[in-house]
């Protein structure tokens, strides 16, 4: 029993460490890519680490009293890390797979967005409250798409466990319904990661960073870190559930192929981010309404077995 617990603990630690330590690196790579498209040299790839280090060393200022408000950044980062432990890095089984299935994954994936929204509403700033109401609208229009896309997998594999879905995918190969689901998930990922054209809830030029306008120093560092982790982990989820091939069954090799695929997804996210202006919230909601309706097509295909 203790040995089992110890193993789970070690595996969780591995997932969390990978997410925590590699997320800033991925962000650094995306920044470098942005700079290249801008005809800039750009900051060094390690810059996000230095950013975090600098922010963490600054004074902790809060615009609102209360222990819940104080704990928000840590909770947000914690929820993102919890999500990372629910998704397998390689292979079929996530370290915390015994603790929950697809439904837990969906809930945990939403927590950080909700917390950022709440911190905005609690910040006593008009910009933050507008940012938070935008965040809420984005959550409401994007979450159903994530849910529908993952449900397609659950429907096809006849299981709610992530490992089961991945296993089914590896056994059965690509299908139309999962491809559509994957595309829908990718489009939603762009919004969940807060990248253009969907960085509406932050919109520096309109509402000065939105929900996080009052956050600074170590608090901002943790929020930033959480968002980078989330972007990495959701890209991992996309790759694992919708595009798990080729699967070799040898963990180190699978780990490398997964890393390459995740990187490709993030590069695509960064390219879309850099070639688009920001949409307005109503335009974005209309867009995701259409994506949501289209993603229902994936369910229909799943029903007829395609």
């Amino acid at each position: 029993m203790t040995a089992w617990l110890f193993k789970v603990f070690l595996l969780c630690l591995l997932n969390v460490a990978v997410a925590l330590l590699l997320a800033p690196l991925c962000e650094g790579l995306m920044r470098k890519l942005r700079a290249a498209i801008h005809s800039r040299i750009g900051p060094p790839i390690t810059q996000p680490y230095w950013d975090l280090l600098k922010l963490l060393g600054k004074e902790d200022l809060r615009s609102t009293r209360g222990s819940v408000y104080a704990a928000m950044p840590a909770l947000t980062l914690g929820s993102a890390l919890l999500l990372s432990a629910l998704i397998p890095l390689a292979g079929m089984r996530a370290p915390l797979a015994f603790a929950g299935d697809l439904i837990v994954v969906l809930y945990v994936a939403t927590i950080s967005g909700v917390l950022i929204m709440l911190v905005g509403f609690a910040s006593a700033s008009p910009y933050a409250s507008i940012g938070s109401s935008r965040e809420m609208m984005m959550l409401l229009s994007v979450e159903p798409i994530l849910a529908v896309a993952l449900t397609v997998g659950a429907f096809k594999a006849k299981t709610l466990t992530l490992g089961g879905i991945i296993n089914w995918q590896v056994q059965n190969g690509p299908s139309i319904s999962m491809a559509i689901g994957g595309v829908a998930f990718f489009l939603a990922l762009q919004a969940v990661a807060g990248k253009l054209p969907f960085d509406i809830a932050e919109a520096d030029q309109e509402i000065m960073g939105g929900s996080l306008v009052e956050q600074s120093g170590p608090r901002l560092a943790l929020f930033r870190w959480a968002m980078w982790v989330k972007q990495l982990v959701l890209a991992l989820l996309l790759v694992q559930v919708f595009f798990p091939w080729p699967h070799f069954g040898i963990p180190p090799v699978d780990l490398v192929t997964t890393a390459v695929k995740v990187l490709l997804v993030l590069i695509l996210v960064a390219v879309i981010d850099v070639v688009n202006p920001r949409l307005r919230i109503d335009q974005a909601m209309g867009y995701f309404m259409r994506v949501g309706v289209s993603s229902l097509a994936a369910l229909a295909f799943a029903v007829i077995g395609k």
Binding site: H38, S39, N276
Partner: peptide, 16 residues
């Protein structure tokens, strides 16, 4: 104008 609507690529290219 590009910068205001979040289109930094236009900003960087026009200023270049």
């Amino acid at each position: 104008a590009g910068h205001i609507i979040g289109f930094e690529t236009i900003l960087m290219q026009t200023w270049r």
